[in-house]
Computed example of a mutant assay.
Amino acid sequence: MIPSSIEKAIVGDITATLNRIGIMYRIFSRAKDVRSLKRKIYSKSKYLEGVAKIQDLIGIRIVLYFPDDIELVHKVMSATYVERRKDASIDDLDDNTFKPVRYNLVYELPSQSFYELDCEYSHFVDSTFELQIRTVLSEGWHEVEHDLRYKFQDDWRQSSTESRKLNGVYASLETNEWTMIRILEEVAYKHYKQKNWEAMLRQKLRLRIQNFELGEDINQLFNSDIELAKKFFRVDREELISELYNKGFDYPLTLKNLVWFANAIFVRNETILGNTPEEFVEEYS
């Protein structure tokens, strides 16, 4: 198969998977042309000497809205594709280091997929694709850094102070990302105290939900039983999304369906179970 057709198929599969669990993201992709492939082969001796192969003929980037989704998406992708763990580039920085974090993963091509390259460089290419995971606020920084510093390192050899300043911009963005999550959590808690249940769940879950109406029955139940509402407020977001994936959730992502699902998996309130369609309960209990 030509790289562009494989690229399109993989992007389609990833998009369907992430849409099903409601993750907020953007996705970008490209397949190297022959000129780019040749340039990379001749840029490093390890390719010419046969020590390593090109693993990013297809490159895909998932740009997430929130940094706490990075590891979650990694787990989901590695449950979907075969990961070459030894080839991953994930920076593990200590507490005193602030610098750009690489989160680059390498996966084997899906079964029945293989590259057909009509050029003399086909033996330099591995049967893999690269997946990068970024966040929205860091994405623009990475684009600037890659195009103006990484590609032209000689331009920066006598500009260590400026290089540190550029990294400082990244540090500020990373801090702002975690601050943003904390702000959303505070807003969710404020709505919990005010009994605004739809707003509470909307800000807590941070998912791409199709319909935010809980319905009168759930709203009234939460109003009459604050302890029950608290149980839903305390459902762990990461565990909920993981279970959506693990259980193969394929119902529309509405707020009511998510409450039914969270109740079937975590809370087990009998009143909500009694108001949930029987087939839904049977499938996810």
Rank of each mutant, 00 (worst) to 15 (best):
D94M: 10
D95C: 08
A31C: 06
V144H: 00
D91E: 02
A52L: 12
D68Y: 01
W141R: 00
D126Y: 10
I133G: 01
F28M: 06
I27F: 05
H146P: 04
Y65M: 14
K75F: 07
D94I: 13
L148I: 08
F124A: 14
Q112V: 06
F152L: 15
V73Q: 09
A31F: 02
Q55R: 15
D126L: 05
T97V: 15
E83G: 01
V144D: 00
N104H: 07
Y115A: 01
D126V: 03
F129A: 05
P100V: 08
G140H: 09
K53Q: 08
F114C: 04
E49S: 13
L48W: 10
D147C: 04
H142M: 04
Y47K: 14
D147S: 03
H123P: 15
E143L: 02
E130R: 00
S113Y: 15
S36W: 13
F124Y: 15
P100I: 08
S45H: 01
D95G: 03
D94V: 13
R85D: 08
F114D: 06
R35C: 06
L37I: 14
V136W: 10
Y121E: 09
V73W: 14
M77L: 09
K53S: 07
R84F: 14
K46V: 10
K38C: 08
R35T: 14
I133K: 00
P67K: 09
C119G: 08
R30P: 07
L48C: 11
S122A: 08
A79R: 13
P100T: 09
R102P: 02
F129I: 04
H146K: 02
K40N: 12
D68R: 00
S127N: 15
R84P: 11
S138L: 00
V51M: 15
